[in-house]
Write a protein that binds this DNA or RNA. Sequence first.
DNA 1: GTAAGTACTATACCAGAGTATAGTGCTATA
DNA 2: TATAGCACTATACTCTGGTATAGTACTTAC
Lengths: 116, 116
Amino acid sequence: MKEPVVHDPQACQKKMLPIQDALEILSGKWKLPILIALMFGVKRFSDLSREIPRITDRMLSKELKDLEMNKLVKRTVYDTFPVTVEYTMTDYGKSLKKVIEALGEWGEKHREKIMK
Amino acid sequence: MKEPVVHDPQACQKKMLPIQDALEILSGKWKLPILIALMFGVKRFSDLSREIPRITDRMLSKELKDLEMNKLVKRTVYDTFPVTVEYTMTDYGKSLKKVIEALGEWGEKHREKIMK
DNA sequence: GTAAGTACTATACCAGAGTATAGTGCTATA
DNA sequence: TATAGCACTATACTCTGGTATAGTACTTAC
């Protein structure tokens, strides 16, 4: 009934550590939605606020700061009348594309499964 | 300096929603580490507790319940002397492989970048 | 008889993620 | 004159994810 199982904690943890690092950077409810929105192109604060359902200004502002700190997003200020601020994905941010795509594909399958 | 930007909130949100669903299921610090450990094969409670650094029994127990509820993990009880319980990935859980791989790859690159 | 292993549960507690609401200083437009 | 838009910040509150610690019931091995 019970067969011996091979355990390789070393190999296991080697897989886990980088993923835990990644999780820390992408942690929370809003970072990925923000990044997805920015994959569609440059956006301003109010664009993001409008296009990400249910996010509050406070969270948007906070998470953008985090993303900027981690070099995933770049903030550019233009000194126009009322200041204009643009947010862009950095190349480093773009390197998350595969992750986002994989998650998106799985999420869609999951939605289908749930709907039934 | 500022060029008009095209916005397509519809398309944007269509990408975001499934990902938010996925995030909810994988949320928290421990679900992915647990799933990764289980990708290496069947494990028992104490195996997981040992192989996932710093996780507490309480969290492990709680997260395993969540994962079981979402059909990502299967729990099997054997009525041996002191009960033995085995946790296995379901096929559905295995469908997360791509996501985990993508995250793992990105995480490794990120580690390298940070180390410098 | 006592220690160790099995798979947990119970209790207590805290920090921080997230929400809600309002307000700032500036300006172009109605 | 007043309202709306811009990019936020401030304050206050809630809730839950996470930590820490201890204890359960059972049994085999020393």
